[in-house]
Design a protein around this nucleic acid. Sequence first.
DNA 1: CGAATTCTTGAGTTTGATCAAGAAGTGTGG
DNA 2: CCACACTTCTTGATCAAACTCAAGAATTCG
Lengths: 209, 209
Amino acid sequence: MLSQIAPSDDLAFFRPHQFLARENERPEAYYDILEGWACRHRLLSDGRRQITALYLPGDLCDPIWPLSGVCHDAVVALTNVRAVRRPLGDMQPLDRSRGAGLRLAESIERQSGWLVSLGRKTAVERLAHLLLELFERMRRAGLAYGQQCALPLTQTDIADATGLTAVHVNRTLQAMRAKGVLEFHSKWLRIPDLGALRDLAALGPHDPV
Amino acid sequence: MLSQIAPSDDLAFFRPHQFLARENERPEAYYDILEGWACRHRLLSDGRRQITALYLPGDLCDPIWPLSGVCHDAVVALTNVRAVRRPLGDMQPLDRSRGAGLRLAESIERQSGWLVSLGRKTAVERLAHLLLELFERMRRAGLAYGQQCALPLTQTDIADATGLTAVHVNRTLQAMRAKGVLEFHSKWLRIPDLGALRDLAALGPHDPV
DNA sequence: CGAATTCTTGAGTTTGATCAAGAAGTGTGG
DNA sequence: CCACACTTCTTGATCAAACTCAAGAATTCG
């Protein structure tokens, strides 16, 4: 057991496709992700899938659970995930750690950004926005190396996060690669010019990322 | 001053297009809306607009402000708005009223629902989803009369909430009217068959609304 | 090494966007 | 109460971004 982990906490491990939480379940604990990626998503009856959040190392999964007590969307691991399991039962909403409120606020801001992206942006803009956001989050987590970072998503995952089809994501990424604004192979992202990609993302001057 | 309003609170009034909060401002108070509608939105540099939340009578505007201290998106009145102004300075996050946490949770759930709508649903499904949600919220606020309620949005507002164009909203609403699943004129909505509209909205069995 | 994903490419289609103009509706001041 | 201005709604014609279907190549994983 690691020294900074409280006695009542446990380490938890998940394999790809394994559920951290199921739809409309009352979660008993939430997870402080140490390693690996997970996502929250919703499936429509005909199979359409929308990813509504991505969880990276350092993220809480999910900061809203303490607040609402239920998780409406399923959460599944995208890679192997190692996390600290924090029981929900005995805590005051948002008071367990001082950072919980801020992290919740951040995740809500992020959702608004995604809403703008899905509602009003083109394929290129959505992809630029998403990849930039993920790179920035990895950088803040200390997991970027210069202009590069791991990005363990399939093109289908990216499609389900951006509201596009996998085929269109593939073609659009190729076009962006051809223009030299990004490199992305074997789950590894490199952004030669952050400013150029930021321009492509149609972000405002005040937007984070 | 109304009897149920605390001494430090004030009534506030807004006209259509008036700001309740500006982009990247630190709000000093939030609003408990008594009457009228408002929306939170973001504008892209070329004029594209996405509405990221709608505030109806009974809603807090905005439940996230106490948490983050800044409002990233502008909030403007869509109609005349009458609201109770609640200063933010002297309160513990989420502790002012017991319901604040729940209302925040609700508004986040709603955002996830919108994310799925914008990312994966067709025009008909998005419109059905939005109108159903708004009707249900009006009903819970005690402002629905049978299957009808006020819905003071222009087709442009609806377009900016659903990520469509105003022209396409117009045509799609006409098609839905022709099928008899809804009536909507002069800012008044009637839903003859809630179940039928719900089917059109591609909502899951557990989704609210 | 073989099975299963994931990625790539092509051809054809569709949904929804764009542009433009006129009709209907709403509100305001005289 | 009417006239004028402005916004909102409606319609038509055309266009484009993204989707669908399909099949083969490249990777990944056990």
